[in-house]
């Protein structure tokens, strides 16, 4: 039988390791979120801000006024919808451009590189203005459509085009991370370049870039706040409107911070968890 002292001596290093590994940062962030939640429930001004920012009162009527959107709020719906749809479009653009970046065709490669470098060389905020006010409407005119795109759509297109360039670099890096032997083996049994890409290279590449894609999804959720400069009524724009008319800056921007932090925290926890699972069965 071990004495208490002896067991303590054995246990202590393990306790120390657990203490070091414990996610204290998570506790700190959750504490902030709980505090904010408490304020929003108990303090009337905070709950009024919350209702307005997520868009449950005085909200724009771009989305149906009843049902789900109205329940979770028009503002937050716009934020989530814009992020999701723009990201899906950006994935398509990114994949095509990423493939273009490694194409052996000089023209295709240069078109893809021009696009990527153009986007990377201009600040995101400036790009949102340029795309939404210049490039998107003029492209619509150019293809002969007599149609004024709503700002929400322009904002979405702008985000997709900007993130398409970032994702293209991720896709390119992912494809280049697969050893050349894989392409050679696939080609050596008679597969075409396209078949080898689709069935051999991309499935492996996408697995490798899942963490990077997840990070960019979170980054996009945050950058979706920039569409507020186009007067798209996402949660940031709602907050600006509220703060501007009530001068309740502290309450408004703390609630806005709370909203983004909640969403990004949930996403980043999902991301960590799925990464761990991916690594387990590797």
């Amino acid at each position: 039988m071990a004495t208490i002292e002896e067991r303590g001596a054995i246990d202590r290093p393990e306790f120390g390791a657990g203490w070091r590994e414990f996610p204290w940062w998570l506790i700190a962030i959750i504490a902030f979120l709980i505090l904010m939640g408490y304020l929003m429930i108990t303090v009337e001004e905070y709950s009024r801000v919350f209702e307005f920012v997520v868009g449950r009162v005085n909200s724009p009527s771009v989305l149906p006024d009843e049902g789900f959107y109205a329940f979770i709020g028009q503002g937050i719906s716009i934020t989530i919808y814009t992020t999701l749809v723009a990201f899906i479009v950006a994935m398509v653009i990114g994949l095509v451009t990423g493939l273009g970046r490694i194409s052996s065709n000089v023209l295709i490669r240069n078109i893809a590189t021009t696009y990527v470098e153009f986007i990377r060389g201009v600040p995101t905020l400036v790009l949102i203005f340029t795309l939404a006010f210049v490039l998107v409407p003029e492209t619509v005119n150019l293809i002969g459509l007599d149609y004024v795109l709503p700002m929400n759509t322009r904002a979405l297109v702008a985000l997709a085009i900007i993130y398409g360039a970032f994702l293209a670099e991720i896709f390119r890096a992912g494809i280049e991370s697969i050893p050349t032997g894989q392409m050679e083996a696939a080609r050596s049994v008679g597969m075409t370049y396209g078949q080898a890409m689709r069935y051999i290279i991309l499935p492996q590449a996408i697995r490798n870039i899942m963490p990077a894609l997840g990070n960019d999804f979170i980054a996009m959720l945050k950058d979706s706040s920039l569409v507020s400069v186009l007067a798209v009524r996402d949660i940031t724009q709602q907050a600006r409107l509220y703060a501007g008319s009530s001068f309740r800056f502290r309450e408004t921007y703390l609630v806005l911070t709370f909203l983004y932090l909640t969403m990004t925290l949930v996403l980043s926890l999902i991301l960590r968890w799925s990464e761990r699972r991916l690594n387990q069965d590797r």
Partner: peptide
Amino acid sequence: MVFQQFNLFPH
């Protein structure tokens, strides 16, 4: 063709 590094498809 058989390669030095096998080049099986790992997925």
